[in-house]
Design a protein around this nucleic acid. Sequence first.
DNA 1: CGTCCGTTGTACCATCTGGTACGTGAGCGT
DNA 2: ACGCTCACGTACCAGATGGTACAACGGACG
Lengths: 202, 202
Amino acid sequence: MSVQSQGSVTRATLLDAAVDFAAGSGLTDVSLRQMAAALGTSHRMLIYHFGSKEGLLVAVVDEVERRQREAMVALADDPTLTPAESARRMWHTLADSSMWPFERLFFEVYGQALQGRTPMAGFLDTVVESWLEPATALGVRAGLPKRRARAWARLGLATTRGLLLDLLATRDRKGCDDAMEAFVALLPPELSGVSGAASVAR
Amino acid sequence: MSVQSQGSVTRATLLDAAVDFAAGSGLTDVSLRQMAAALGTSHRMLIYHFGSKEGLLVAVVDEVERRQREAMVALADDPTLTPAESARRMWHTLADSSMWPFERLFFEVYGQALQGRTPMAGFLDTVVESWLEPATALGVRAGLPKRRARAWARLGLATTRGLLLDLLATRDRKGCDDAMEAFVALLPPELSGVSGAASVAR
DNA sequence: CGTCCGTTGTACCATCTGGTACGTGAGCGT
DNA sequence: ACGCTCACGTACCAGATGGTACAACGGACG
């Protein structure tokens, strides 16, 4: 048990713990002292490492957004899958109850960003586009013209987020699963891979 | 100019003003004094009429939910329209920029309710079901079996809310309009009225 | 006219907030 | 051994917060 591992809690470690704490308790009414106590440090240290409460919130929100984007590319970047299958897997991952705390945090930040709260407002600049872009690329790769691919991506993104809102409120996993499956079944043949680019090439 | 109209600001009047204020500024970090100043009264009076800050928030959240539900039945209760047309009109109403402040407030409350914040938590009990139920009835009336009608209602609700989130973040009215139109075009014939119950009766 | 009740203003309270001043001590390069 | 920097604890600050005590005003009603 080195003194190092316990004594020098680095900024990155604190940030990770702060995100976890925020996922569990929200970051709306929390004070520096409450969060510091939960992280096993003092509010003095949070200000030391992040400059101010605002700085801490900015760091947490940025980190949430970074993870969000990271999750997106991890989920969308398997070229062996059809877009429909990618959507299914994405939903399967996102809807798992182990992810719920982070999704709650996501929607909490989203809601405050919509109200223009300072650390969160920047969230809105990327919250749609950073998902729309890779999803659109998926559709284009499957043979859709860009405009149509983007329209489908937008619809799929909205449906996914709407169903997550539903799921988090009702906890009705089956109802939401069914709805997502119904949506995927509506996708045009190019996206579900039954025909599409391959059939055109044939 | 009676003394009455200016002097005795009743609770209901204050509540209305409070909801408007919340729609414009959010209700996350607001203090009693700030809100009182915006409403032209004193924090003393807010406590007098609502008991506590919590009581005020409860009243505001309940009122938001009441209006939400009221808006739903107003939008869904025209039996001369097909469900597809109802959905179009509903989107047209909800997506109008004059409604944005209330939708921002809706999602702000939703986000905090997901985190279990006390005055908002009850929001979740009705936020899905109170919309799902009338929307399902719409589908049943159009000739769908109840299970299918409910599944479509759930999908439509999720899509609408997801697209509203998109719209509020990106302000891309056209992109979201197109996506909603594309979704409505996917509805089964019973819901869009090209065949369905009428053709069965014929 | 007297008196009661709903409403409102003033003043105050303990508590908590984010942030700062200052000291301390460990590691490390010289 | 000496400073120097990074990390951290203690103590403190001014301001804002939700809530309360108390007085006063004004109309309703006996």
